[in-house]
Amino acid sequence: MIGAVRERTLTPVSEADLSRMLRIRHFEKALLRLFEQGRLNGTTHTCLGQEHVPVAVSALLRPEDHVFSNHRGHGHFLARYDEPHALLAEITGREGALCNGVGGSQHIYHERFLSTGVQGESLPVAVGVALRHRRTGDGIVCAYIGDGTWGEGSVYEALNMAQLWGAPLLVVVEHNRIAQSTPTARQMAGSIAGRCAGFGVRHERVESVDVNVVRGALAPLVDHVRREKRPAVFEVSVHRAGPHSKGDDTRTAAELAEAAAGDWYPHYTRDFPAQVAALEEIERAFIDAAVENVLARPLSEWS
């Protein structure tokens, strides 16, 4: 274990990282607000409390790398592609949407980013894409999953094949301790480390809200995946500060308080109050303007 969730002092954060974490946060908060106002169709899964993970990961990826994402993927996307207007247009079915409003929140295919809504389904596909990278260059595939995803057999089939065939696949596990409403302890026997050991797949675990600490722990693993052309699993212990989707949180007050305490945001406001305040104003205004801009657009078209 590297670090602890409640670091006494965070390492200095770059403006770029902090801005992006705040941008994702305000994007997610804007979505929840729009839902409350009845202005969003369907459902969404926000990544509140987990924003620092994709921001840490994305800086280590190259343009040719592929990213596979899941239902809780807005942060994964925005950390990889700084296109909040296009993502919001996708979620609201407006002109300029990433996928013309067809895929919505959890089915996005844009450049080298692809998300699907079925748990674990992406991993075998990611192995296929990684095998192509193995053959054609030194690109890698980064696939985000959650702790709940480990209930799916496809995860094990994929890990087995990735290790057998040397697929350059980095699996980033955002272990947020809860699968929708079920605590991980009640849906997972054993550990993720133990599972990886069974396949001989390298595994690292980090528990930190510090974007630099997470990135520092991941960097050698990305290097390993890229150079050795082997899979690896990177497990980040995080807290889901928000509901599973919207207004469906059944956690107790104590559990919610614990999740809130494990959120990166209060740590950064505590350690870097002026920096957060300054950037937060910019990001809040930016997202507010994006919301106004996108919602004023015509509806998306699909032929």
Partner: peptide, 25 residues
């Protein structure tokens, strides 16, 4: 040509991944 583990779901997924990435499977 790849002989695979007994993972029908997995290998169809791998085939789809190859296909998406520019190969044919």
């Amino acid at each position: 040509v790849m002989s695979t583990p007994l993972s029908e779901g997995g290998i169809v997924g791998v085939g789809a991944g190859l296909a998406l990435a520019g190969d044919r499977a």
